[in-house]
Design a protein around this nucleic acid. Structure first.
Lengths: 126, 126
DNA sequence: TATTTAATGCAATACCGTTGCAATAATACA
DNA sequence: TGTATTATTGCAACGGTATTGCATTAAATA
């Protein structure tokens, strides 16, 4: 299926680019309220994820955030680098921290994925 | 409000004790299917959390797990120790790892909570 | 410009957790 | 032990969120 460019897609893509950080479903919904149907937002975001334009991350608050794939390879997203994610509880900003997650699993354990979240105040909000 | 002991509560409590690990809502629901109403399970689990009998943890798969409070103090649950949580993708077991999460935040950042999840195979499943 | 079919909006559906309410039953007390 | 109180339960209804079906619209291509 060959994708088509539409106003809805451009709007959401621009939104993500301008934000510079990951945006949650609600945040996106709020910003494009009235411009398009709720269902369209779901479908656009899903298609972005399928096409490797964005990836979907589940934050520690149970919400999904969408972030542009910048350093993501074909198979794996950048998120396999096992770094911490930060979520500001004041401004709701979500970002990746440089700090790597280091972990030694007990004998006999095999690691697949790591999801590490820190909440708090970012440098702007503290 | 003085709590009362009921078959529903005993059943779920026994389930958690026997399991030895944290159980998700669905797992509990599956195991007591037919014995009690869906709503009752929600209410029992909520009351357990309110009473400090269990705590509720959000796993990296977006599901809530319920675990007996063993070393939990009055105010804070044991989970404030910033340790890793492990979820086996084969047997679905969820457990706390001894390994502590160490992290140095960038200048100006303030830490509130940490949620660190590792998925993979446990020693029994690897 | 005409054709093809991806994308959209709307309505309907599914899923998950909660709430209202009447009926039930666990506890306290006479 | 029997009765009164009220926490608990089941059922139905609700609210929020994500998905699906389908007719319509419009992006891409010839």
């Amino acid at each position: 299926m060959r994708r088509r460019n539409t106003p809805a897609k451009s709007t959401i893509l621009t939104l993500l680019k301008d934000a510079g950080t990951a945006l949650s479903q609600d945040m996106i919904e709020d910003k494009v309220k009235g411009e398009m149907d709720r269902v369209t937002i779901y479908r656009v975001l899903n298609s972005f994820c399928e096409d490797g334009i964005t990836h979907r991350i589940l934050a520690d608050n149970g919400k999904y955030y969408f972030a542009l794939c910048l350093n993501c390879g074909e198979e794996k997203h950048d998120h396999n680098h096992d770094h911490f994610h930060f979520r500001c509880t004041k401004c709701e900003k979500v970002e990746c921290l440089d700090e790597e997650v280091t972990l030694t699993l007990p004998q006999g354990y095999v690691k697949q994925t790591i999801s590490s979240w820190v909440t708090g105040y970012c440098n702007n909000c503290s």
